[in-house]
Amino acid sequence: MDLIWEGIRQAFWLILQGDSEVLRITLLSLQVSGSAVLISLFLGIPLGTYLALARFPGRNLAVSLVNTGMGLPPVVVGLFVTLLLWRNGPLGILDLLFTPIAMIIAQVIIAAPIVTGLTIAAIQQLNPQLRLQLLALGASRLQLFWLLIREARLPLLAAIMAGFGGVISEVGAVMMVGGNIKGQTRVLTTATVLESRMGHFDLAIALGVILLLLSFVVNWALTWIQQQGRPR
């Protein structure tokens, strides 16, 4: 029990004092996962909207693939990206392995299907007649697309939350493709693993607490926006 209390005490001390190492790790986590979610939104929302509206042979297969992708094990993603970026691999020439960019790539592969899948669900729950009405009002294809996304904005926030939650807490993929290099690719999750393995529980707890807080603050903000728009 002492170990835990001491750890927590130390942790808050580290956070309050603004330990430079802790700060750097936190910032990198935010940068990597934030970029990954942003990229996933740019990919997933248009793709999800398209899949929700389009009718073409093989659409069901595509939706099933997306849904499967929502549950991809990060370790498998890590392995795949590692192989892709390996020195002799297909993209080895880019020399990206063990860089933040590699971590972003891996996290996009994890988050994009989540965003796509939840976008499909969000767009499909809209009244199918609405699309007809918007076209009748003179919406072009692009305008229709934008209006439907705007209509589904509240459930789409859930997609952002789920995407961010999925990658900020993920450890397998970033560990494999980032390598947990101090000062370069060390993020909250990998640092927590390392510090607790080395017995630095105070630091591990501090990192864990920051991770929790971060997750909470982002989700709280999005939930707040979502509930503002809730029908009363």
Binding site: N127, A136, E151
Partner: peptide, 27 residues
């Protein structure tokens, strides 16, 4: 864009009445 339709369901967008009525013009 030279026609307009009204359906059985009002099918309004999730915004104000003014913005709904303005939608076609904005488009």
């Amino acid at each position: 864009r030279r026609m307009a339709s009204v359906f059985q369901e009002p099918l309004l967008c999730d915004t104000t009445v003014f913005e709904n009525a303005a939608l076609g013009l904005r488009l």
